Simulated scan of single mutants.
Amino acid sequence: MIKISIVKGFTLLELMISVAVVGIIASVAYPSYIDNISRANRSEGQRELLRLASLQEQYFTDHREYTTDMTKLGVPADPYITDSGFYSIDASVVGVTYTLTASARGTQATNDSSCLMLSITDTGKKAATSTNCWE
C-alpha cells in the first residue's frame, strides 16, 4: 500500500511574489487616494470662501463698506480657520472691493501643493495658484 501525503502551504517564492504584487498595487493606489482626499478637503475651503463672500455682501448692505475683520462677519477669529483646520481665510479690502483668500495649512498644504491659495473677489471672480483648483 502506497501512502500519498499532501503538504499544504506556500513556498517562499510564492509568498514573495504575492507581497511584491500587493506592493505594486499599493504604490499605484496611494497617490490617487491622497489626491482624492486633498480635493475633498479643498472643497471645504471653497465652501467657506463662498459663505464668507455672502457674509461680506450682507455686511456691505448694513454698513456701506466691506470689512477686513473676519469676526465682524460672525466667525470666531481673524483670520478664520476652517472647521477641519485645513485652511486659513482672511480678507483684504481696497476701496469698495474685497478679496477673500484661503491659504492651505498643515497636511493640506503638503498634499495639495498645486492649490495652496484659493481666492474670490467681490465680483465673484475665483482665482487660485493653479487653473484647476476651482473645479
Rank of each mutant, 00 (worst) to 15 (best):
P79T: 04
Y80R: 08
Y80S: 12
Y80H: 12
T82C: 03
T82Q: 06
T82W: 06
T82H: 02
T82L: 05
T82S: 09
S84M: 13
F86R: 04
F86I: 00
Y87G: 12
I89R: 11
I89V: 13
I89M: 08
I89H: 09
D90P: 00
D90N: 13
D90V: 09
D90G: 11
A91V: 01
S92K: 12
S92V: 14
S92N: 12
V93A: 08
V93I: 05
V93G: 11
V93M: 05
V94N: 12
V94C: 08
V94H: 01
V94S: 15
G95N: 07
G95E: 04
G95K: 00
V96K: 09
V96G: 13
T97E: 14
Y98A: 01
Y98N: 01
Y98T: 00
L100Q: 08
L100H: 03
L100W: 03
L100Y: 08
S103D: 09
S103H: 12
A104R: 02
A104K: 10
A104H: 05
A104F: 04
A104I: 09
R105Y: 05
G106M: 09
G106H: 02
G106E: 06
T107S: 14
T107D: 15
T107I: 14
Q108Y: 04
Q108H: 03
Q108E: 15
Q108A: 11
Q108V: 08
A109Q: 09
A109R: 10
A109V: 07
T110R: 02
N111L: 13
D112M: 03
D112N: 15
S113A: 15
S114L: 11
C115A: 10
L116Q: 09
L116W: 00
L116D: 01
M117R: 15
L118Q: 10
L118M: 05
S119N: 12
S119A: 05
S119W: 01
S119Q: 05
